[in-house]
C-alpha cells in the first residue's frame, strides 16, 4: 500500500543544511496500523508529510496506493490526496464552519452533489459518535470531539490511507484512549491503512501492529510491536519501552517483597503473547499442593498479543514447590526465582 524507497529530505536554510529524513526504506501493507515513534526533531512529521506530497523528498521515491506521490503534481496530486487523508495534532478545523459543514468540506472539494453530501455527512457523524453536535461550531467542542470531527472529515471521501500526525498529543489520557479505540474500530471496519506518528509509547502499544523507531532522521529499529517490546535492541527503543513497563520491576520493590515474605518462594513471571492469556495460576493451584499469592503485576495488551510481568509468592512442601516451578517453566513463561527461603 505504501512504499518508501531510499527517501532523503534535506532542508536548506540560512544556518545550513538539515537532513530531516535520512535514507528511509519502509513497506507498509494494506490494512496495517503502522506506528512511527521518535523524540522531537527526529523527522517524523517530515516523513509523514511526504506521504501526501505536502513535502517532496530530496531523493528517493514514495508510492502510496499506486500513486507516486513524490513525483505527481497538480490535478493528479490533488486527486491522489483525496485517497490519502490526514488528521492533525491541533485538529485544524475551520472555525467559521459548523461540525456538519467541516465534514462536508472534503466532499465539496471532491465535487460530490449536495444531496449525497448531506447523506454522507450524517453517516460520518454517526460513525464517529457526534450525533446531536452537528450544528455546533468547533469553538463549542472539547478536544476529543474536535478530533472526532477531524477523523470524520478525513474519512469523508473513503480514503485508502489515513495519516495521523500526533493525533492524540493534545488530548488527555482518557480522551486519547477513546480516539485510539475509534481508530482501531475504523481500521477493522473499513480496512483502512493507518500511519500514525507519536512520541508516546503507549499509543504504539495500544493500537499499532508494527512500529518504526526514528532517531536523527533514520529508522533505527523496525518490527512487530510485541517483538520490539520483548527484545528492544537500540538504547532509544529501550527508553521508549520503559515508558510503558511498570516500576514494579525495580530492585527496591523486589527487596521489599523478600522482606515481606521470608518463607516460601517469590517468583517473577514474564508473559509474552499467547502465554499471557492462559489460566496459569488456576492450573497451578489445581494440580500442585502449593498456596499461591499474587503480589503485584501488570499485563498490557498490544495489537499482536499481551505481555507483562507478575510477581507471585509460592509456599508449600519443598518438593511440591520445585514441581510447581518446573510446571511454570514448561508453559513458555519466563520464570525467575527470586528467593528460596
Amino acid at each position: 500500500m505504501i512504499s518508501i524507497k531510499d527517501v532523503k529530505k534535506i532542508y536548506s536554510s540560512r544556518q545550513g543544511k538539515v537532513t530531516a529524513v535520512d535514507n528511509v526504506n519502509l513497506e507498509i501493507t494494506e490494512g496495517e496500523i503502522f506506528g512511527v515513534i521518535g523524540y522531537s526533531g527526529a523527522g517524523k512529521s517530515t516523513l509523514i508529510r511526504m506521504l501526501n506530497g505536502l513535502e517532496i523528498p530530496t531523493e528517493g521515491s514514495v508510492i502510496v496506493a499506486n500513486n507516486e506521490v513524490s513525483k505527481i503534481k497538480g490535478g493528479s496530486l490533488r486527486k491522489a490526496r483525496q485517497e490519502i487523508s490526514m488528521i492533525f495534532q491541533h485538529f485544524n478545523l475551520l472555525w467559521s464552519r459548523t461540525v456538519r459543514e467541516n465534514i462536508a468540506f472534503p466532499l465539496e472539494i471532491a465535487g460530490v452533489p449536495k444531496g449525497q453530501r448531506m447523506k454522507r455527512v450524517d453517516e460520518l457523524i454517526r460513525l464517529v459518535g457526534l450525533e446531536g453536535r452537528e450544528d455546533a461550531y468547533p469553538s463549542q467542542l472539547s478536544g476529543g470531539q474536535k478530533q472526532r470531527v477531524g477523523i470524520a472529515r478525513a474519512l469523508a471521501n473513503n480514503p485508502k490511507v489515513l495519516l495521523c500526525d500526533e493525533a492524540t498529543s493534545a488530548l488527555d489520557p482518557q480522551t486519547t484512549d477513546s480516539i485510539l479505540e475509534l481508530l482501531v474500530d475504523i481500521n477493522k471496519r473499513l480496512g483502512l491503512t493507518i500511519v500514525l506518528i507519536t512520541h508516546e509509547m503507549h499509543v504504539i502499544r495500544k493500537i499499532c501492529h508494527r512500529v518504526a523507531v526514528m532517531e536523527g532522521g533514520k529508522v533505527v529499529e523496525l518490527g512487530p510491536v510485541l517483538d520490539v517490546f520483548k527484545h528492544p535492541k537500540e538504547e532509544i527503543t529501550k527508553r521508549f519501552v520503559q515508558q510503558v513497563t511498570e516500576p514494579e520491576e525495580t530492585k527496591e520493590t523486589i527487596e521489599h517483597l523478600l522482606e515481606l515474605y521470608p518463607h516460601g518462594t517469590v517468583v517473577q513471571l514474564g508473559f509474552v503473547g499467547e502465554a499471557a492469556e492462559q489460566p496459569l495460576i488456576t492450573n497451578l493451584i489445581r494440580h500442585y499442593h502449593v498456596t499461591v499469592n499474587i503480589l503485584q503485576g501488570k499485563i498490557s495488551q498490544t495489537q499482536n498479543g499481551s505481555y507483562g510481568t507478575l510477581f507471585i509468592h509460592l509456599d508449600g512442601e519443598k518438593e511440591e514447590l520445585s514441581k510447581a516451578i518446573a510446571y511454570i517453566e514448561s508453559q513458555q513463561v519466563g520464570v525467575e526465582v527470586i528467593s528460596n527461603a
Partner: peptide, 22 residues
C-alpha cells in the same frame, strides 16, 4: 492558522477553493 490551509491542501483543494472557502 497555517494548519487550516495545510489541512485544505491535504484534502486536495485547488488554490481557488482555498481562497474562496478557507
Amino acid at each position: 492558522d497555517k494548519g487550516v490551509i495545510e489541512a485544505a491542501k491535504s484534502m486536495g483543494a485547488k488554490t481557488s477553493t482555498i481562497i474562496f472557502k478557507v
